[in-house]
């Protein structure tokens, strides 16, 4: 089931990336916040991947090319600004996507109606940090601007229709742009002007083409399960 894999992989991969902050976040409250967001996403991933097959087999035994997540979510954490920019872009997308799915009657309506309330907190968190960093010191402003610029080329892929996801993609795109533009403006940041997908690789995660850091990420994510199948403790 293409759609469940696409949405489930988005949630799983971003959850893993956020989990990498454990033990490294700038303050304890942020460590807890990022872990909470990761846990919400992992819960969504488990429901979605279970619609497509066995959740553990899908998460731990697929090769890189079989993952269908957008390239945005696999991007490395970078500095804190990069993590926040990635979260701002993704949460705004997921919020609008789940709102539309929740109002329909498809296979994702139940999950979407539940998860959209969780995502509201994720988006709120990303917005607050974008405002604080963008409208903070010169240093934080520059780093936040660099982060929103660097990740911009991965945002176009968010709006490529996914087979089996019955929503209005055009209104998702316009709603997303409106939401993100408003936050960046309030944060005294400039909306990136470049293309939303790169000429070279960006925009093929849904077809299984991933960026170079993703291979290392899933190697770490899958290592334990592959080395010790069925391990429990």
């Amino acid at each position: 089931m293409t759609a469940a894999l696409a949405l489930g992989d988005d949630a799983l991969v971003l959850s893993h990336r956020l989990g990498e902050w454990a033990g490294h976040a700038p303050v304890l409250e942020e460590e807890v916040a990022l872990a909470n967001i990761a846990l919400d996403l992992l819960g969504q991933a488990r429901v979605l991947l279970s619609l497509a097959g066995d959740e553990d087999e899908l998460a731990y035994l697929r090769e890189e090319r079989a993952f269908r997540n957008v390239q945005l979510v696999e991007q490395p954490n970078g500095d804190f600004a990069h993590t926040i920019a990635r979260q701002l872009y993704f949460s705004a997308y997921q919020q609008l996507l789940y709102e539309q799915l929740a109002s329909g009657e498809g296979p994702f309506a139940g999950l979407a109606a539940k998860a959209v309330k969780e995502v509201a907190y994720h988006q709120d968190h990303a917005e607050h940090w974008t405002l604080r960093l963008g409208d903070g010191t010169d240093e934080s402003h520059d780093r936040m601007q660099s982060a929103v610029d660097a990740l911009w080329r991965f945002t176009g892929e968010l709006f490529e229709p996914v087979e089996g996801v019955e929503i209005d993609w055009q209104s998702l795109r316009s709603g997303w742009l409106e939401s993100v533009s408003a936050v960046l403006e309030r944060a005294t940041l400039t909306l990136p002007a470049g293309p939303q997908s790169g000429a070279w690789t960006a925009g093929a995660g849904r077809q299984g083409i991933h960026t170079e850091p993703f291979g290392r990420m899933i190697a770490e994510m899958q290592h334990l399960h592959r080395s010790h199948p069925g391990a429990s403790w």
């Binding site: 409250e29 807890v32 916040a33 967001i37």
Partner: peptide
């Protein structure tokens, strides 16, 4: 409010 996220998913600090 100190943080919207706390010791479990359902709580804020």
């Amino acid at each position: 409010l100190l943080s919207r996220f706390s010791s479990t998913a359902c709580k804020a600090l």
